[in-house]
């Protein structure tokens, strides 16, 4: 086989490969492109038209958003979501890394049992806890506050993140903390000055996922929040769907896109961390 033929064959393979990948890409991107295009169309052209982007784009839908929903500016919903998302990130990072440190670096009695319990909660359907947790927070008069949505994050109930960090810390060389111990470092110092900085990749991955989870969360806010002023972006959008989705369909579509933006931005900024972090930690058994 001549070199030229090989190159030609490779070229053909490459074209086929890219064609396949582009076909998948089209399916994946269509809804996102659709929502961008639709948000620039007038109300009655949104559903029926096959044209992805309007020839005559309008910005009315976005200008409508500036009025907010029912006297509540959109910035309120974004502020609330941001508060919850950032609050969740802080809680998850602090509580999960403490637990993971204990699991990997401290030889305390009962460690195995607790670890098994923690793994058990990983597979537990959330819905079993939904009603009793609600009853608990209702009795404590904490419904319609952010506490029910945040408390679990500060108490490391997202077992997945504990597990992720355990996986990571387990692979840090043992010699490091032995050296630290010889230098007279206690556990807190070792945790704070040695282990945590080395765990940066795991911490970043956890932070991003926690943020996105909290941002997208729908059921928690739906159940616990009562006052529209405390609503998150998800609930604000749902309110839009219920209230104005008919008369102002375009506004609803524009709001859908705006609600997605933070997640998309996060994704574009951190996609390396997300994908590599998940893929590699997923394979270290």
């Amino acid at each position: 086989m001549s070199a030229l033929a090989t190159i030609r064959r490779r070229g053909a393979g490459s074209i086929a490969w890219h064609a396949g990948a582009l076909a998948v890409l089209a399916v994946v991107l269509y809804p996102v492109l659709w929502v961008i295009g639709a948000s620039l169309k007038p109300n009655d052209e949104i559903v029926g038209s096959l044209q992805l982007f309007p020839t005559d784009p309008i910005t009315d839908n976005y200008r409508h958003l500036a009025q907010g929903i029912a006297d509540i500016p959109l910035s309120t919903f974004f502020g609330n979501s941001l508060f919850l998302a950032v609050g969740s990130v802080v809680g998850v990072l602090a509580s999960s890394s403490l637990a993971a440190y204990a699991f990997t670096r401290i030889g305390f009695a009962g460690r195995g049992v607790l670890f098994t319990l923690m793994i058990g909660t990983l597979l537990l359907p959330y819905h079993v806890l939904l009603i009793p947790q609600y009853v608990l927070f209702q009795k404590l008069e904490l419904v319609n506050t952010y506490t029910p949505l945040l408390l679990g994050k500060y108490l490391a109930t997202d077992a997945f993140f504990v597990f992720l960090m355990v996986q990571f810390m387990r692979n840090l060389p043992k010699e490091l903390d032995e050296a630290a111990r010889l230098d007279g470092c206690g556990h807190l110092r070792t945790y704070w000055s040695i282990v945590l900085p080395l765990c940066r990749p795991a911490l970043i991955t956890s932070a991003i996922f926690t943020f996105i989870n909290a941002w997208n969360d729908f059921m928690g806010p739906l159940i616990y929040l009562n006052e529209p002023e405390k609503y998150t972006v998800s609930l604000g959008l749902k309110m839009f769907v219920d209230q104005d989705g008919v008369a102002n369909y375009g506004g609803m579509i524009a709001m859908s896109l705006v609600a997605l933006l933070p997640v998309l931005v996060f994704f574009l900024a951190f996609q390396r961390y997300l994908i590599d972090g998940m893929a590699t930690s997923g394979l270290k058994g």
Partner: peptide, 15 residues
């Protein structure tokens, strides 16, 4: 610290 953060939340939102 974390308890205080939660307390703040609760206080800010107590209807």
């Amino acid at each position: 610290g974390s308890t205080a953060a939660l307390g703040l939340t609760a206080a800010g939102c107590g209807g």
